[in-house]
Amino acid sequence: MAFKKHSVLPGFNLALGYTLLYLSIIVLLPLSALVLKSTGLTAEAFWHAVSEPRVVASYKVTFGASLIAATINLITGLLISWVLVRYSFPGKRFIDALVDLPFALPTAVAGIALATIYAPNGSIGQWFEPLGIKVAFSPIGIVLALTFITLPFVVRTVQPVLQDLEPELEEAASSLGATRLQIFWKVILPTLLPALLTGFALAFARAIGEYGSVIFIAGNMPYVSEITPLMIISKLEQYDYLGATAIAVVMLVVSFTLLLLINGLQWWSAKRMGRR
């Protein structure tokens, strides 16, 4: 890496050096161990391991459910952040704090609690049972768990942008005769777009890797409700280390791509917001 620094501040070499060292030990070295291990497979075997019908079905479940969960949160997240920023009501600070609960609550606890609530004899599940809708132990359960886990992302990315939004813009639009709905669609939403997309992508990235909360509620039926992390565990339990590694590498590549995308989005967002 070549550096160009233009600061009088000291400690760059020390800080960056330590950052890179620590990053290498904790993150890069273990992850490259993973990638290296997968080279123990021939290209053909690798492809075979990651394209087995059952594994492919698990990608569909994982990506499908994550996509739905992230989309649900796109809408609910916008709504919740809108209400939290623009309206006042009693207990607002408490609600605002509560939004972060899924970050703080261990995923296994969330999984057990959700399975208890949405089981056919659970406090909410019993109302769906007569309708013939199975929430827990079906793909709906996976979507539910992932929606819970990723709920804070969109709220927390949209909230600050919404807060910084200048009222002048809306006032101007209003004085030009735009209706409230028009202002929302034409003025507010475009400004929020980068933040919304960032939140969406973060939620999606988190959802595809989630394991702890999902296994308790998924039902784990082959081809129907098996998630990809479960396939890794399942391979491990058959002592198929290479197969597990191959799937893990696929997930790793997807995660990394998503993160690059998110950082690109944030850069775009920063540019649009006129910072820098």
Binding site: A115, A119, P120, N121, G122, A136, F137, I215, G219, N220, M221, P222, L230, I233
Partner: peptide, 20 residues
């Protein structure tokens, strides 16, 4: 089979606790 738990204990929980 409506639910495939990973282990025997999970299956029992599904049957007894969830009443499935």
């Amino acid at each position: 089979v409506p639910v495939l738990d990973a282990g025997g204990r999970g299956a029992t929980t599904t049957f007894m606790q969830r009443q499935i």
